[in-house]
Design a protein around this nucleic acid. Structure first.
Lengths: 235, 235
DNA sequence: CGGGCGCATATTGTATACGACAGTGGGCGT
DNA sequence: ACGCCCACTGTCGTATACAATATGCGCCCG
């Protein structure tokens, strides 16, 4: 369909991109905007405006918003529209506490089943992460971090836990990115990732799990510390 | 809207019900059907058929399906429709391990903040539960159990954990209901609920948390035991 | 002069209609 | 005879059009 509408004007729906449906593409685009902070928490998303901007009708917009609501990125109130949802300090603390408990546990289950291919993939993710760090490509950081963590835990045989962690990682990502002047933290994370990987490959699974726990704990404390100072936004 | 279409036939959308939109009502109706087992895992949901059955157009159906996919009840494949998703034994084990881990922890945080009103509400839920048990109203069981558990944990100050547990409880519900000839288990659960409530009210928080852990553990083991025997369905 | 009611408007929710994709069966070529 | 290509069919995805609902403002009444 897409490109018949020359009328639409200024737009850029990446139908060319790998997505199979327009609504999925829009969902992805909006997700990026929200995670990147371009759309601040509390911002109201109006269907008409989005539809016009993307040069499409409101139906795919609505379905995209539904998908985002599933991921907790927006909140939809019937007849009143969708607003970008933010996380309170309380919620962030909760998210990190869950990660601290769940991730090491899964790593212990998963580590012994990591294959050489897994290690190679994880190393390449870590390399990309380091490269993104050096290049200052902040917008890549969250996704790479997420894929790294999930890759580590992939073989734990706990599918539900894994999908929960995926959600937690995504929710960590946004507030983290907002206060990302702390590149020191990211560099530290990079080093810790490497060490965790080495420990896993060496069979030092418990040590790896402990380091992972510390790694997440530290990231959480650091983020909450920063978050508390700029006590402005609310949910 | 709705009722202009007398043509539809077997109408059942309860617009009278508290729902504010049709799609939400449809989502709820389908959720009930799936959780009650009326729609078996693997069943393909065709939008046309559902639209005709409810006497509405496909749009609210689509949005309802999106919402269900968010809750993990169905899986949507682009251009190929939605199928009811089932849980593998592996997933059920995971769900119960998560509950065993999370619920006692939250109870310890929540118990001391339960108000007299909370206790009164929880007792009345427990009473309803017992009444449903005696009356054999199986379809009420899951919802009451869910509300009871969530009510206990309400004041833990861990919003994200709470919503995760809500999802876990929902996912427990369906497989549990399928094999519900084990009324003995339900009766046992009823007694344990009462004891947990008493312990909380008496301030024996740790004891309550321990009993809650045992309660969930037992329910999990029992369900998995049964589930393994009738090893038929898959995800 | 203040408070409650009703209309106007903006936005969302739903219906209908059309175009597009995946799966399938028959016809054709080799 | 076997395999490939093409048109067909069923279903989904999206566009357009209409109806319903929430909000803000002005007006009437107390």
């Amino acid at each position: 369909m897409a490109v018949t509408a020359g009328a639409g004007g200024t737009r850029s729906v990446p139908g060319s991109l790998g997505h199979r449906t327009v609504s999925a593409a829009v969902a992805e685009a909006l997700r990026q905007r929200i995670l990147s902070g371009a759309l601040a928490p509390g911002f109201q998303l109006r269907q008409d405006a989005l539809a016009e901007e993307f040069g499409i009708s409101r139906i795919p917009i609505r379905e995209a918003l539904l998908q985002l609501e599933a991921g907790g990125l927006v909140k939809i109130v019937p007849h009143r529209g969708a607003v970008v949802s933010g996380l309170s300090v309380e919620e962030i603390e909760d998210v990190f506490q869950l990660r601290v408990f769940l991730e090491p546990q899964l790593l212990i289950l998963s580590a012994r089943h990591l294959t050489p291919e897994d290690f190679s993939e994880l190393r390449s993710l870590r390399d990309e992460y380091g490269a993104a760090l050096k290049a200052g490509r902040i917008e890549l950081w969250g996704d790479l971090n997420r894929r790294f963590h999930l890759g580590l835990l992939r073989h734990a045989g706990r599918p539900r836990s894994l999908s929960i962690i995926a959600g937690l990682l995504q929710d960590c990502d946004r507030p983290t990115r907002l206060q990302l002047s702390v590149t020191g933290e990211v560099a530290r994370a990079d080093m810790e990732h490497t060490t965790i990987l080495d420990l896993c490959e060496a069979g030092e699974i418990v040590a790896a799990a402990n380091l992972l726990r510390v790694h997440v704990e530290h990231a959480g404390h650091s983020l909450i510390e920063i978050y508390r100072r700029s006590a402005a936004s609310a949910a």
